[in-house]
């Protein structure tokens, strides 16, 4: 196989890996916030459900969760799987899993906020929503950014777990080519891809951190 053909195949895999990455973030970051609200809710039932959810999501392998999300509908409801559902299952699985991690990060950030910030906002007349989104949340973001960065970097590498559903992202393709052509090159390309992707992510996160360093 010519190198250019190989690279072309790998690059379609890269795009797919990147779309898993971005879509997962787009869904799991807000979902995580909602879960953290449930986790801190005054309603004991909701709180317990969220606690159990987070515990399961963090306590079982992500690969297993992907398999459950993908094959579950078939075994449970006899639903037709495959086709576009493969990609949907991947995004769903990743988002549900990462949302659990993000929820705990949000919670730690929100609980670390001094009560005086809420009280000052309340006395100044801010409503609950205004208080949270104008006063509390921006400060929480700054506090949790380092932990978020860790998760995001892990996510870049975790996208390779999609091979368990035989979805043709970077890692799956690299493995296929390597097996068919008995060559080590695709793995080297894959390694470089993940490393550079993470480098870019790290630089971007550092930029955001710097932008927020105008106060402490």
């Amino acid at each position: 196989m010519k190198l250019s053909v190989m690279l072309e195949q790998l690059s379609t895999g890269m795009l797919k890996s990147m779309s898993i990455f971005f879509l997962t973030l787009i869904f799991s970051l807000p979902l995580g916030l909602l879960i953290s609200f449930g986790r801190m809710s005054k309603n004991k039932i909701l709180r317990t459900i969220m606690k159990v959810y987070i515990s399961i999501m963090r306590g079982t392998p992500l690969m297993l969760q992907l398999l459950v999300v993908y094959f579950g509908p078939y075994y449970l409801f006899g639903m037709q799987i495959g086709g576009t559902y493969r990609f949907t299952a991947i995004i769903l699985g990743f988002s549900l899993n990462y949302a659990a991690y993000f929820a705990e990060i949000y919670r730690s950030g929100i609980e670390s906020m001094p009560v005086g910030q809420y009280e000052a906002a309340r006395v100044l007349g801010y409503g609950k929503m205004q208080c949270f989104f104008c006063i509390i949340f921006p400060q929480v973001v700054k506090r949790i950014l380092p932990s978020i960065t860790n998760e995001v970097i892990t996510l870049v590498k975790d996208t390779s777990l999609s091979f368990s559903l035989a979805y043709a992202e970077m890692f799956t393709i690299a493995k296929q080519i390597a097996a068919a052509q008995t060559t080590f090159v695709p793995f080297v390309v894959a390694a470089i891809f993940y490393y550079v992707f993470n480098l870019v992510v790290a630089v971007a996160m550092e930029r955001i951190e710097k932008k927020l360093s105008y106060y402490h």
Partner: peptide, 10 residues
Amino acid sequence: VFQNFNLFPH
């Protein structure tokens, strides 16, 4: 006015 100000740092 609070003892420890409670200004919004951001």
